[in-house]
Design a protein around this nucleic acid. Structure first.
Lengths: 133, 133
DNA sequence: CTAGTTGCAAAGAGTTTGCATGGCG
DNA sequence: CGCCATGCAAACTCTTTGCAACTAG
């Protein structure tokens, strides 16, 4: 059940750390890693990505006019207690703390019988800067 | 260049008008129409959907935790907002309407200067059924 | 040694395209 | 009748899965 510390895992984590301000499709990640001479198989890539998303280390987005998922570093443990606002225009990922949003979890549980995993929520929209432009 | 008024076109438009309060995947639309005895081919469905999206009659979006596009009638103020509750256990994507969550949009705008694209939010967690098991 | 991990290739799912037939105007 | 639309099936793209070889602990 424990996780092995493989070379491929290291490579992917390093990639996201080096590029935390951008998001990438699976194909782009594969390509970028290949450029660095750090190839890794598609299957492994998708499996690791899914895991990173589950762990909350990476976030997945899908643009409305696209058909592919994009992945972006979302911080590790330091991102456990706040929410993420993703700007669909400039791609920026904002981190905010908010009591109001904290209450949302209890509301959804109470009124919809659904146990929310609050860390995974990504609120998409347009940031202040882009909205003004 | 002009558009013909075909039976299939009528059928799709009527479908969206009759269901403006909800969104559907292409597969769901196909199925619903088949139930009504108004079948239409996949190719035609996708071609018409794309056109409706281009015309602004229908809106397409993809939940971050899904891989399929959803389509919804985009005209009229009477359209309510929808939220996605994604169960991480069984994979089900629940669609709910909720005033409380509507307020969240205004809160985030007011306190964080961020224009929320409310339909894109995917709330991850565990559904009632899976929570009991 | 054991259990988790990798990578290839094949399978799947959703969507798009080619082309002959059919329908609107 | 001309042009656009339809529908079937094949092609495509992105992603997942099966399985045997491999590797960290």
């Amino acid at each position: 059940m424990s996780e092995y510390n493989t070379k491929q895992r290291e490579v992917l984590l390093r990639f996201f750390n080096d590029n935390m301000h951008h998001h990438f499709t699976a194909a782009e990640i594969e390509l970028e890693l290949a450029k660095r001479g750090e190839k890794l198989g598609k299957a492994t890539l998708y499996r690791r990505l899914e895991r990173l998303v589950d762990e909350g280390v990476v976030r997945r987005f899908v643009a409305d006019d696209a058909r592919v998922s994009c992945y972006q570093y979302a911080g590790g443990d330091e991102c456990k207690n706040h929410y993420h606002l993703k700007c669909l225009k400039c791609g920026e990922l904002l981190h905010v703390e908010c009591d109001y949003l904290d209450e949302m979890g209890s509301h959804v549980l109470e009124h919809h019988g659904f146990v929310v995993d609050i860390q995974k929520i990504t609120i998409c929209g347009v940031c202040e800067r882009c909205a003004k432009a």
